[in-house]
């Protein structure tokens, strides 16, 4: 059942991304352009999504365990360090250059623009480079 939970969540997530305009690069860049012709609509997407997770996660936490899994798999990191800040800053740069973050880039694969395929392949390559850097650093 767990794979089906992934599918269901992904479909609803992708539907929401397309409906909200997050998978339209022009709208995202317009949203980030607060010093130009700012299009604030996507602020509502974030506000609505976070309202649901804040309320919904509080309810889910009362579950003893997930319906189709033995336990919850939650991030344990708490530190605000240079790796977090540097990574987030690099991610923001890429987001600002092209208007895609990872989820919308996947949803936009359906639109058939070949450059979106190159974006996703480059994104995977970037993750691989980062994982090599992490391995090298952690082994001294």
């Amino acid at each position: 059942m767990k794979p089906l939970a992934g599918l269901l969540s992904g479909i609803i997530f992708g539907f929401g991304l397309a409906l909200s305009g997050m998978s339209d690069r022009d709208k995202v860049l317009g949203f980030l352009d607060i010093f130009g012709d700012w299009q604030p609509a996507l602020l509502l997407v974030m506000a609505a999504a976070v309202t649901v997770t804040l309320l919904g996660f509080a309810v889910v936490r009362r579950q003893r365990k997930p319906l189709f899994a033995p336990s919850f798999y939650l991030p344990t990191a708490r530190a605000v360090d240079a790796k977090l800040l540097g990574g987030a800053a690099l991610f923001g740069m890429g987001w600002g250059v092209y208007g895609f973050c990872p989820g919308p880039a996947f949803t936009a694969l359906f639109y058939g623009d070949t450059d979106t395929y190159y974006f996703v392949l480059a994104m995977i390559t970037g993750m691989w480079i980062a994982s090599r850097l992490e391995t090298r650093t952690s082994h001294g």
Partner: peptide, 11 residues
């Protein structure tokens, strides 16, 4: 952009 997004989100 894809390289930056991949690097940044992983780090």
């Amino acid at each position: 952009a894809g390289l930056l997004v991949g690097l940044g989100t992983k780090l």
